[in-house]
């Protein structure tokens, strides 16, 4: 059996579309965690937070351990604003979820290289790809059609086997 309890129940899809934060009022406290300083989304949020006189802490991306401890110390009512590259956001959300945060208790602004992972229908190998519609599996050489079917467990999109006379489809 695979031991992926945490991953399954709590890992969630990181929306990369969001460019700005929307301030959520009436929270006991806001924690703003940014990978870099001078991000416009963060500056805007800070202005709003200060205007409203809400309690907040602005944290620079520090050591992993420190952030995990910070998350674990939080009481109910703390809201998280996370801004960073996909890799960093994945680390942070994993730590937040471990501490007990849910999707409803955080907002994410994710920026930087948009690479995605592709799952090979034939051999299950996962490779990183760009924005192609079709690629060859780096492991088995099968021609794959990139789909929008996404697995959180594998953090990958499904690559359907493409026959020379292309059709595809999943019959469920």
């Amino acid at each position: 059996m695979k031991s992926d309890n945490e991953k399954i129940v709590n890992k969630f899809v990181i929306q990369t579309k969001r460019r700005k934060f929307t301030f959520v009022p009436n929270r006991r406290k806001s924690i703003i965690l940014a990978e870099e300083t001078n991000l416009e989304a963060v500056d805007e949020l800070l202005r709003e937070v200060k205007n409203r006189g809400a309690a907040y802490s602005l944290i620079d991306a520090g050591e992993k351990k420190e952030i995990a401890d910070l998350f674990a110390r939080q009481k109910i009512g703390t809201y998280l604003y996370l801004a960073g590259t996909p890799q960093r956001i994945k680390e942070w959300t994993a730590m937040a979820v471990k501490a007990g945060f849910t999707e409803e208790e955080m907002q994410i602004v994710c920026y930087g290289a948009e690479e995605q992972r592709l799952f090979c229908a034939h051999c299950h190998h996962i490779q990183t790809i760009g924005k192609e519609d079709a690629v060859q599996c780096a492991h088995c050489g099968m021609q794959l059609e990139v789909s929008s079917h996404y697995s959180r467990l594998h953090d990958a999109y499904y690559g359907y086997i493409q026959l020379p006379c292309s059709d595809g489809g999943e019959s469920r």
């Binding site: 674990a72 939080q74 009481k75 109910i76 501490a99 007990g100 208790e105």
Partner: peptide
């Protein structure tokens, strides 16, 4: 009593 519980409660 609920107020000072940790996140994840």
């Amino acid at each position: 009593v609920m107020k000072d519980q940790s996140v994840g409660t």
